[in-house]
């Protein structure tokens, strides 16, 4: 039995760090009536994907079929004397999608197409006591706000020629050493670090929706040569 366990352990170690487990239904990102983990839950719909995605008339360019009202900011971007790469003046597509909830300016039910035939088919939604918009009191750590100066830079052009202390991407992705996880870059040149570079909003097992557990800070060290 012990031998079997050892073998199993070996297998788990070699493949257990494979693709993250995706099931957004069992995460805080399930805001529907079927969800239970999010502090914000509606009783109005049991659809899960709809809070972010729509098959038609997607809102935010680059973000995958985004169903949410595009936030307008304005945002204070991160800046630092120690940064050598270039940060865009405002969050770009993929990150803007995340901010359409996490900046606290757009209600969860402010959608392009509501469940059903689309558009504003529902009228007034019903939410639990935490309401229909992200607040720092309910979500002190998940609430990003429009002040991004205390958040890891996003919409930053990943250019290792400007700072040799970063690992070069391979095929526009950055491998997390010791795993088979790679971190994506975005934008038309596939060189932008966005929220999705680290986060997988569908991930169900890894805390804070990271693409891979940050044990030994392996996620940080994937990019940073530190």
């Amino acid at each position: 039995m012990k031998r079997a366990l050892l073998v199993l352990t070996a297998v788990l170690l070699s493949v257990g760090v494979a693709y993250a487990a995706e099931d957004v239904r069992n995460t805080k990102h399930n805001l529907s009536s079927t969800g239970s983990l999010s502090p914000y839950l509606t009783t109005t719909t049991d659809e899960v994907c709809v809070f972010c995605h729509t098959p038609h008339f997607a809102s935010i360019a680059e973000a995958p079929l985004w169903n949410r009202t595009e936030p307008t900011g304005p945002y204070n971007m991160y800046s630092s004397a120690t940064i050598d790469m270039t940060i865009a003046g405002s969050p770009q597509g993929v990150s803007l999608a995340c901010l359409s909830c996490h900046d606290g300016t757009v209600a969860f039910d402010s959608l392009v197409n509501e469940p059903g035939s689309g558009l504003d088919t529902i009228g007034t939604w019903s939410w639990n006591n935490n309401g229909n918009i992200m607040t720092s009191s309910t979500s002190p750590s998940a609430m990003i706000g429009t002040d991004l100066t205390n958040d890891h830079p996003i919409s930053i052009t990943y250019d290792t020629t400007k700072d040799p202390q970063f690992r070069a991407p391979v095929n526009n992705r950055i491998a997390v050493n010791g795993t088979n996880v790679t971190l994506p870059l975005y934008g038309s040149n596939k060189d932008q670090v966005e929220c999705g570079s680290c986060h997988n909003p569908h991930e169900k097992d890894v805390a804070t929706f990271l693409r891979v557990a940050n044990t030994g800070s392996q996620l940080c060290l994937a990019c940073h040569i530190k």
Binding site: S32, T34, E47, V48, C49, V50, H53, H202
Partner: peptide, 19 residues
């Protein structure tokens, strides 16, 4: 809107997507 099946719990989406 003219869907092949109800999207209850986003079931239509989940038919294909593992998310």
């Amino acid at each position: 809107p003219f869907l092949r099946k109800a999207n209850t719990g986003s079931a239509l989406c989940y038919t294909c997507h593992i998310k």
